[in-house]
Design a protein around this nucleic acid. Sequence first.
DNA 1: GTCCTATGAATGAACG
DNA 2: CGTTCATTCATAGGAC
Lengths: 148, 148
Amino acid sequence: MVNAMEWQKQRCWQPNRNAEMMCVKVMTDEQLEILRKQIAVYATICEQLIEMHKNISAHQDLAGIRLGNMYCDPLLGSGGLKIASRQRWTPTAMQLQILERIFDQGIGTPTKEKIKEITNELSQHGQISETNVYNWFQNRRARSKRKQ
Amino acid sequence: MVNAMEWQKQRCWQPNRNAEMMCVKVMTDEQLEILRKQIAVYATICEQLIEMHKNISAHQDLAGIRLGNMYCDPLLGSGGLKIASRQRWTPTAMQLQILERIFDQGIGTPTKEKIKEITNELSQHGQISETNVYNWFQNRRARSKRKQ
DNA sequence: GTCCTATGAATGAACG
DNA sequence: CGTTCATTCATAGGAC
């Protein structure tokens, strides 16, 4: 069977081999606009799905499905044995989204108060500690600085 | 319905850092990186939501949403745009030899100055960036350590 | 085309 | 804060 993933990958991201590298990679304003709209659509879909889901199961939280992005979950799932999956904290998609948004507001390293606040908010979307938040901001800042 | 897993698998595309091709940048690498992460976040959230939803209503199909196509098609469709998949740096034989030689001198972690210097020297033997050199030493040290 | 391995890169945490 | 370490993620390249 055709590997659908590979197909899509090729379709989406890989340079057209026939066209060769000579083509100039330019994103026109129009294309950028389309991209923005696509992201907006994504956001809307996410919201709708979340809404939809809330109506179906009021008790289930996004935090509960964090399993999805953990490395060894497929293995764990079959055995039913939940061995400690990972030592270090990994932000969930939701948490990352929020963190990035806060970071973009350019407040620099949050105060202790702010950290508490953020931690509290993020803990609705998964396990997290104040240290995690603190470290994240430290790293984010340092790396964005070094990057240029 | 688009397989969300497949979509997620693609979430790691990145701008080509080593871009040796003719390339007119309309976004900085930083911006592209942010964009990438943004999309990745949505992709992950969508996947998780879909997964969650599957567990609840097995009969309902989300096909109408066509998550998988949303992002790529518009971009690809408009003539020659491509966002190259990441191409990771691979040291040339010459570069590797030099790197190994420097490493064997046991200077430990090169300073930032040293990195610059090395990068400069190695760039005579092929495309390379300071980040590449930095990473190489990080990995080399870590792996030689772990081996014991 | 499928699996495996080496390794470039990313990143949470810790150190000075 | 700037650096460094430890671990994990993702991919290039080879074997079959």
